[in-house]
Write a protein that binds this DNA or RNA. Sequence first.
DNA 1: TTTTGTTTTAAACAAGCGTGTAGAACACTC
DNA 2: GAGTGTTCTACACGCTTGTTTAAAACAAAA
Lengths: 212, 212
Amino acid sequence: MNRKPDVNTKEALLTAAIRVFADKGFDAATVRDICSLAEANVAAVNYHYGGKEALYAAVLEEVFPKEEREPGSDASLPPEERLRIFLRDLAGEIYERGNEIIAQRWAIFLREMAKPSRNLDFLIRRQIQPLTDDLRAIVAEILGPDAPDSALAMSSTNIWALMLDHLLTQPIQDRLTPSRPAPTDMDALVDHVTTFALGGLLAVKAKVAPRP
Amino acid sequence: MNRKPDVNTKEALLTAAIRVFADKGFDAATVRDICSLAEANVAAVNYHYGGKEALYAAVLEEVFPKEEREPGSDASLPPEERLRIFLRDLAGEIYERGNEIIAQRWAIFLREMAKPSRNLDFLIRRQIQPLTDDLRAIVAEILGPDAPDSALAMSSTNIWALMLDHLLTQPIQDRLTPSRPAPTDMDALVDHVTTFALGGLLAVKAKVAPRP
DNA sequence: TTTTGTTTTAAACAAGCGTGTAGAACACTC
DNA sequence: GAGTGTTCTACACGCTTGTTTAAAACAAAA
């Protein structure tokens, strides 16, 4: 049918590998799956990348590109508003439907979290660390200078959990309450989580620094 | 060395299987691992249980026993106090160090959540559903009758996430802030999460039912 | 055309997997 | 002790895995 003089086998392998690894995870993915999807021979992975693990490393390098982060949202805004923006952006990324590479990025991230490999460090540094740094700064500003480090750490983790859990426990939630709100009305979700998070932060703040 | 006239091979296989399945998950666990740990022949699994999957089913039946639930905490207490008790109990279960079977129970639950199999339904019904039902009742009482169903569902999920995330994201948290609070001071964790959750719930309540 | 280097291919490899089988070992009743 | 049903063992089967190999196909320069 269609010859493919323009597509390079090595690149075809990479894009196929991204899809298969995101779909099934490193262990369940087989090089035969990948090569079949890339319309290449089984030996191609070894020839071009040196092995399955090296191909996976190349996939991570591709899916989690090293890019200079823009500084977190405008520091002149009140922290409550910055928290809302942070949550909206994060939810937008996680639930983005159009951009396939971002969906695959979070799929791979989830699989690494469920079964950490030695690549998890790399992945955290590239993708998660900048986000949590931003979040931590916002939370610190809301809690104020009197909040102890432990409260800051736990609160940041809590907010992070509020967003991620929808991704992690989706199969469970579907079984418990099949009539859950459609994931399409993301605005309502962001709104709710923002309200919940701000309320939680205020309560924590009131507790660690009771009125003077 | 030690003969084992008292231990039954079938039971030895079961306890070995619980440990191996909890450690490595269904796919990564091999019947040779299990039989080796149980000091039994490779064919023992097929003889006594009929296969690897059937053994796994037996493990689930053992680890998630069918027991009549005690009704949720004393209904006469205020819901805020019942929430605190609920969170303390849940944290106690999750982080329990002494009771091996409970640790394995949550390990298996996590693995099923990460890679759901057809057994996830069974597992949810036996272990998670009763807990979330209790939590939902408490949250409903705190939010009051005016709260819409979606707010109730999302809020319950949020609180559930607050507790579970410590289990799920432990490897990540360790990498981000290696100096995180030791998991030993569970009281502080429960205290914090309770404060955060109550604050979040109040904020949600104030929003969905503004002052009359 | 010949040469040289790169890429692709079919086939095979060794290792590991779950499972099946036939016989030995065992425990127990007559 | 002979018979009988249960349990255990060594071994092998068929299959899938990642990887290797040797030859074929190809591309570009001499």
